[in-house]
Simulated scan of single mutants.
Amino acid sequence: MAHQIILPRTMQIGKDASKQITETLASLNCSKPLLITDKVMVELGYADRITSYLAEHSIALDVFSDTVPEPTVASISAGVEALRAKPYDCIIALGGGSPIDSAKAIGILGKYGGEMRDYKFPRVVNEEGLPIIAIPTTAGTGSEVTRFTIITDEQTSEKMLCVGSGFMPTAALIDFSLTLSLPQRVTADTGIDALTHAIEAYVSRKANLYSDAQALSAMALIAPNLRTVFADGKNENAREAMMLGSTLAGIAFSNASVALVHGMSRPIGAAFHVPHGLSNAMLLPAVTAFSIPSAPVRYAQCARAMGIATQGDSDDLANQKLINELKALNADLQVPTPKDFGIDKEAFFTITSTMAEQALASGSPGNNPRIPTIEEMVAIYISLWD
């Protein structure tokens, strides 16, 4: 069986890769970019850095910095308005997953019009939007190499999953030096997000030999370095490993799909404003324990790739080590429970069935080795509380 593999047209990977922005624009025959980012990237000076690189080559750059941490229909609409204000021929997306996801949606809506809901899954968006050059500043989402974007509908609190080659960035500049100033909490949340991408891609029902190779390599890079970057954010070797691991994990899940963790994570984020990586972390141990009986060999290989089980360990022992490690990782990275995060208990328990229904509708649970019922997802949600 053949598998379609979709990647950016070009990638620059390594320290100072972001300095290749002018050469990348030239390779795409683009000269009128709009930079889409957020206020943090402006405050940290990263937006000015890109502006300066381009000014040296007489390329003017306008900046739209009103993206929000969890992109919404309203924030995308504001970006589309900015994009249509001038004849821009491409987008530079700078930041974590939210600015890059925003840029993907803005590029499609800005060119084709309509409403964001028109583009949500199960529609597959293969129309080509404006060229996007993605410059990630976190080692986590992998959005620079994925054909997905997630936008929240404020009216329904639904996190809409949008899928298709139209959302794949045209180019990616993957510069780990941009992650050196990340705060501990962002480092932890995005790092566990990347690890979740790799694990879910490997156990997904849509996994293939290509995605397997990327996922296993990603786990081998992320697992030994996540605690290190949490404790010492200036460790360049660990930051570089995390950045490459995140990108490989993004490639893996973009070509194999995520599964139950992500399906159940999105409704938590939409309803209670929990950062995406953090809600993944809350769910990862429980969902992994639920899913192992349907894919014990695959999960055991994850434990071995992560370096927490040996080739001599039985699959049962490797899987027990995997569960123990995921719980220990959450403890070491100070991942809160929903209760500790400050979510209202009654509100959380009241909405568990709705969240389960939204998770199922996203399609991601259908990729899981063990496909859950609504009742089983509700039980998992309840088990997270404290």
Rank of each mutant, 00 (worst) to 15 (best):
A359H: 03
G342W: 11
N319E: 00
L326G: 04
K339G: 05
P338L: 05
Q320P: 02
I343E: 07
S353T: 15
L329W: 05
A359Y: 04
S314C: 02
Q311V: 11
L326R: 06
F341N: 08
Q358W: 14
L326T: 06
T354M: 10
F349L: 15
A347M: 09
T352F: 05
G312Q: 10
A347W: 03
E346Q: 15
M355H: 02
T350S: 12
V335G: 01
A356Q: 09
M355S: 02
T337F: 09
D344K: 06
K345W: 12
F348K: 02
A356H: 04
S353G: 12
Q334R: 15
P338R: 09
L360T: 06
K339Y: 07
F348M: 04
L360S: 03
A356I: 09
I323A: 07
T350C: 09
Q320S: 08
D344G: 07
T337E: 11
F348G: 01
T337R: 09
A331N: 15
G312F: 02
F341E: 12
E357V: 15
Q334H: 15
A331P: 05
G312I: 01
L326K: 05
I323C: 08
L360E: 03
F349K: 11
Q320C: 04
Q358V: 06
E325P: 01
G342C: 09
N319W: 01
K321A: 01
N324C: 12
Q358C: 08
S353C: 08
I323T: 10
L329R: 03
